[in-house]
């Protein structure tokens, strides 16, 4: 059975229809990337999976349980799915350690010592143990985002949603966050990503879904999607982002890319 099943989900804000019938399944240990132009609905889709957004119609099932059904507990189900945001959303009034331990202590009711132990383990894993007593505003964007990932992992989710997690980062520190995500993928974490990093998507994704105007227009294996898309809209989108990406790299003076041109 698929870990996550999304069935014909619709969502509008007033007159603005953002999701117009999205259906997609994600299997355990699968990594799925959602790509598409800004405002296509990929971020909204991720937030609906975490029940941060209500839906107008359709169903979202996590391990077969409808998150909006009368007899299911959205809080319980959303604990199985962690989310990491574009803007990190760390709690600025708490230390790094407290950011990570808050939910384990208050929701899982772990004791302080136990929660700290768990946090320290995660901090080692994201290689930021030395920052455990710092406050978020003293960290770089990349460090904040790694802490945000550690915070999500502290609830031991079965799946991780990553909502454009590198879009707010300076180009030179995107790598450290992507490396961490790749590591999680290789460990078998089920993941759904909304991303603009095409090369990274190709590297980690098992499947890429192209979202356009609230619909999944096309999906498939990364190589096929990125090199030989079937739908003209996918091709158009890819030609645009890849051209921009190449342009940016050329400007930064990446010798390999300049040679390739």
């Amino acid at each position: 059975m698929a870990f996550l099943e999304i069935r014909d989900v619709h969502k509008s804000y007033g007159d603005n229809a953002v999701l117009k019938g999205i259906s997609v399944d994600i299997e355990p240990h699968e990594v799925v990337c959602f790509i598409g132009p800004s405002g296509c609905g990929k971020s909204t889709l991720l937030r609906t999976i975490n029940a941060l957004e209500t839906i107008d119609s359709g169903r979202i099932l996590i391990e077969g349980q409808d998150i909006w059904a009368e007899d299911s507990d959205a809080d319980e189900l959303r604990m199985k799915v962690g989310i990491v945001f574009q803007q990190f959303n760390l709690f600025p009034h708490m230390s790094v350690l407290d950011n990570i331990t808050l939910a384990p202590r208050k929701v899982l009711r772990l004791g302080r010592a136990k929660a700290n132990e768990l946090a320290d383990e995660l901090l080692h894993r994201v290689r930021l143990y030395d920052k455990r007593n710092e406050y978020p505003d003293r960290l770089s964007g990349g460090q904040q985002q790694r802490i945000a990932i550690a915070r999500a992992l502290a609830m031991q989710p079965r799946m991780l949603l990553l909502d454009e997690v590198t879009s707010a980062l300076d180009p030179e520190i995107v790598g450290e966050v992507l490396a961490l995500i790749a590591e999680l993928a290789s460990e078998g974490m089920t993941m759904a990503l909304a991303t603009h990093e095409m090369n990274f998507a190709r590297e980690v994704a098992d499947r890429i879904c192209f979202v356009h105007q609230g619909r999944i227009v096309e999906q498939g294996a990364p190589d096929q999607m990125l090199t030989a898309p079937n739908d003209p809209r996918t091709a158009q989108f890819l030609s645009r982002v890849l051209a921009v990406g190449m342009h940016a790299k050329a400007r930064k003076g990446d010798p390999e890319d300049i040679a390739a041109q």
Partner: peptide, 11 residues
């Protein structure tokens, strides 16, 4: 987004 982050963690 602060409340969203908190709710997403199960609070």
């Amino acid at each position: 987004s602060q409340a969203a982050a908190a709710r997403s963690l199960g609070l």
